[in-house]
Write a protein that binds this DNA or RNA. Structure first.
Ligand SMILES: [Zn+2]
Ligand SMILES: [Zn+2]
Length: 840
DNA sequence: AGCACGCCGACT
DNA sequence: GTCGGCGTGCTC
């Protein structure tokens, strides 16, 4: 406010009207200016949430971005209705980050804020309709139609009606006319109200009344209660829980009423004690964040090995020169302990730290570990937690109570104002990239920008860094520290490539397994060991094919084959959820020779149960982990040894350490390597290495078996030697010659429409417009993506590939302009265009 | 994104 | 003539 010169334009006594630019959580390119009512002028601040009317019947939450004195030109500003926060919930650094995200990822700041804010902080509703209290039908000098009278009568009875309710009387179109007319006749008024979605959680507590806080009066009280044993029980329990003399502050904050369990203590005695003013009862606001948070700081020590200490020193060295440093450490080398020791120092110095992890890596064990170290100063930001809990973390960070957040992708958008360290673990994980809806941001890259805004240091950790990151480290843009040693001297498991081509020729295979794999597994199980089997396809069979005519069962709405699910005997689409009973005969030629092709986790489970009838086998994929705790249950059963063999998709590749696993099987390596994506092989190597990391923890006989029909693929040569860098170098040459990242940046333009030819033509039109501006060699001509149709929406893509140093910001502007030009053609106006910057 | 307004065909 | 479809443009 201080920068406003209030005196210049106004006579001294008059307070000027102020206006606020409000950022709304909508995909609109600009802010909206509202008038600040006089009575709210002293309460408003940049960064607080407000309720504003938007359109004719809606009210929404927005955030104050700027306060100004000049009224907007060309329209009359509406009034802000309400201020929701006393203190800002968005800080300056966040506004800067949001601006960057909107610009870089080609979306609006409103879209960024919409994703950033937990939904409990975005209140909105429709206005409601009420009779104007000053209105008297008898005295009105208007004529009311019959329908209007019906509405007025209903309002007399019901008091408050929604637009919806009035629409039910007649039809939607008429009702809005009626409301408009009644408003003009001043018969009704609009009422705007929102209810706070986020409610603080409260709890009843009692405390000993002041008058008993000296030993004498307390002794007298106890004497008096001698004849009332049940009341005395309650009092004694209280004194046992709350040492009123040695820890008077505990009495101050009180004891939760629920401590007096009704089966042990008489509820009426407690009430009597409250009535007689022995106890005082009060209601206090408690945190919801008590899941695993009751533990105050228990551990204060982080024990680092010599190797870890050396590594830490190297990171400190690296940070001197590079604010971004890559920590390259093999699975199980104890990177986490190094992160935690850095984080501890940051928190103790009074600034904030952020620890980003992929969703599945935020395990109960991880949460418990940080709780023990940091107590209540930690906020866990995770989609498994309720929205109310996320609101509390947000507020905790904004108010400075939470100094350390461990969280998923979206936690980069929390209201940090004093960050000095960010850790991004498993930085290569593609789940750091959001795809739908906008902003299509990469949390690792966004975190790097966030670190620049805060002048903070950022540590990227991975056993298999993303090639972009590794390349940046190699060319000296990032610092690089390698942690080679595997914790506890464990040896890396042997990786064996199983030649399926040969096995098939010798007829030493079942549908999905080679005999050699099955015998090895048999042996390991007999030794009392466990096995993990990886297949990145869920369901029973990926497709159902007619042997007579070659017909394949496809989804009605999408251009994909339907997956057969044995459990429900159904064909399902994994993209739109479409399902149908599995047909008995071919829909084209009516032949009954239908065969299931390929294999998903479900079939593998079935086959293995057939081969190993006495073995306890469990499957972990999206289908078996739908329920809230099922993931945890499967993990625990495997950890305890109750399950001997765990079959799963990507889910089994991350995070958890199972000590007794001696064999890991990759059923179909080819499926991982061969799909049309320039990153397919990078991903395949990462994934196979990661899955391999599950074998032979703390034991010397770990083994990984990889089944493939292409055993001569160079990937395997590097894989069996754990030569990450060698394969990287090889791939880099290919990336260079085909002009792919890290040698260029990609902007993927996706056009979506409900007609194939219009979508196709629109893409061609856009391509023709872009070619002369950006240059044909920087464009990949319009093409269908791998799945051309999803939910009956047709997709076309144009890729823009820009070499390093090519003006990025300007090109984005040119793309947006070209799209606008394309939409001047009415055929293409209804196409939806989506931009995906740095696609994963 | 959601919603109102307006122009058109079709159906009481 | 009215009803409902979608295409267009606006929301402070
Ligand atoms: Zn057929
Ligand atoms: Zn589908």
């Amino acid at each position: 406010m201080s920068q406003l010169n209030l005196q210049s334009n106004f006579p001294e006594s008059k307070q000027p009207t102020l206006f606020a630019k409000i950022l709304l959580p909508l995909p609109l390119p600009k802010t909206f200016t509202y008038r600040i009512p006089k009575n709210l002028q002293d309460l408003i601040n940049v960064g607080v949430r407000v309720i504003v009317p938007f359109g004719t019947k809606k009210i929404t939450t927005g955030v104050v971005k700027e306060i100004q004195q000049t009224p907007p030109e060309g329209y009359e500003a509406k009034y802000i209705l309400e201020i929701l926060d006393e203190f800002p919930v968005l800080c300056n650094q966040q506004f800067r980050l949001f601006e960057w995200m909107a610009q870089y990822y080609m979306c609006t700041e409103g879209e960024v804020m919409n994703i950033a804010l937990p939904s409990g902080m975005k209140l909105s509703s429709e206005s409601k309709i009420q009779l104007n209290p000053a209105f008297k039908l008898e005295q009105a000098n208007f004529i009311f139609s019959e329908l209007e009278l019906v509405v007025l009568n209903l309002l007399k009875k019901e008091n408050l009606l929604s637009y919806q309710q009035i629409a039910e009387i007649s039809n939607a179109k008429q009702s809005s006319l009626i409301i408009k007319d009644l408003l003009k006749k001043e018969a009704i008024i609009l009422i705007e109200q929102v209810q706070e979605k986020y409610k603080p959680k409260t709890e009843k507590v009692v405390r000993l009344h002041q008058q008993y806080l000296d030993k004498q009066s307390l002794a007298a009280l106890m004497d008096e209660l001698e004849k009332k044993p049940k009341q005395l029980d309650v009092l004694l329990k209280y004194l046992q829980e709350v040492p009123v003399f040695s820890e008077p502050e505990k009495n101050e904050s009180g004891l939760e009423k629920k401590v007096f369990k009704p089966e042990e203590f008489s509820a009426s005695s407690l009430s009597t004690l409250i009535k007689n003013e022995v106890f005082e009862e009060m209601e206090v606001i408690v945190s919801r964040l008590d899941y695993l948070s009751r533990g105050k700081i228990v551990d204060t020590e982080i024990q680092l090995s010599d190797a870890q200490n050396t590594c830490k020193e190297q990171i400190i060295q690296s940070f001197q020169e590079f604010p971004v440093t890559l920590l390259h450490g093999v699975t199980g080398s104890g990177k986490t302990e190094i992160y935690l020791s850095f984080i501890k120092e940051v928190i103790e110095s009074g600034s904030q730290a952020l620890f980003l992890l992929p969703e599945i890596a935020i395990t109960t064990q991880m949460i418990q570990r940080v709780r023990k170290l940091f107590g209540d100063q930690v906020g866990v930001y995770h989609s498994k937690f309720s929205d109310a809990e996320r609101v509390e973390v947000w507020q905790g960070v904004a108010e400075g109570r939470i100094n350390f957040v461990i969280g998923v992708r979206s936690s980069v958008m929390l209201p940090f104002n004093n960050l000095s360290l960010i850790v991004v673990d498993e930085e290569h994980e593609s789940s750091y990239k959001q795809y739908d809806p906008a902003p299509r941001y990469h949390a690792r890259d966004t975190a790097i920008v966030l670190s620049q805004i805060h002048q903070a240091q950022i540590l990227l950790g991975s056993a298999t860094p993303a090639y972009e990151t590794f390349h940046n480290a190699h060319k000296g843009k990032y610092g690089y520290v390698k942690l080679a040693e595997r914790y506890g001297e464990g040896k890396l498991p042997d990786i064996e490539i199983v030649d399926m081509r040969k096995a098939v020729a010798k007829k030493q295979v079942t549908d999905d397994f080679s005999y050699v794999f099955l015998t090895t597994m048999q042996e390991e199980l007999e030794k009392g060991k466990q096995a993990i089997i990886f297949q990145n396809r869920r369901g029973y069979a990926p497709y159902l094919q007619c042997e007579t005519c070659g017909w394949i069962a496809e989804c009605e709405n999408c251009s994909v084959s339907l997956t057969y699910h044995m459990h429900q005997h159904e064909l399902k689409c994994h993209y739109c959820g479409f399902r149908q009973k599995s047909p008995a005969a071919c829909l084209k030629c009516e032949s009954t020779a239908l065969k299931m092709k390929g294999f998903g986790t479900e079939k593998i489970e079935d086959d293995l149960k057939l081969h190993f009838p006495d073995t306890r086998i469990q499957r972990m994929d999206r289908d078996t982990t739908r329920k809230k705790y099922s993931y945890q249950q499967i993990i625990e059963a495997f950890e305890s040894g109750e399950t001997q063999v765990l079959i799963g998709t990507q889910m089994v590749s991350k995070g958890l350490d199972f000590e007794n696993v001696s064999l890991v099987g990759i059923v179909d390596a080819d499926r991982i390597m061969y799909y049309p994506d320039f990153r397919a092989e990078e991903r395949a190597f990462q994934l196979m290495l990661q899955v391999s990391g599950r074998a032979g923890r703390n034991n010397k006989s770990g083994k990984v078996m990889v089944q493939t029909f292409q055993k001569d693929h160079p990937l395997f040569h590097y894989l069996i030697n754990y030569n990450f860098e060698g394969f990287y170098q090889l791939q880099l040459k290919e990336r260079h010659s085909f002009f792919y990242p890290p040698f260029c940046r990609i902007i993927r333009i996706i056009l979506k429409g409900n007609q194939a030819n219009i979508t196709r033509n629109g893409a061609q039109n856009l391509y023709n417009a872009l070619s002369p501006i950006i240059g044909q060699k920087r464009l990949l001509a319009p093409h269908e993506p791998m799945i051309a149709k999803i939910r009956n929406i047709y997709h076309m893509e144009i890729w823009v590939k820009l070499e390093k140093g090519y003006p990025l910001e300007n090109t984005k502007k040119q793309i947006i302009e070209s799209v606008e030009k394309m939409k001047e053609n009415s055929h293409f106006r209804k196409l939806k265009v989506v931009y995906d910057v740095d696609p994963q």
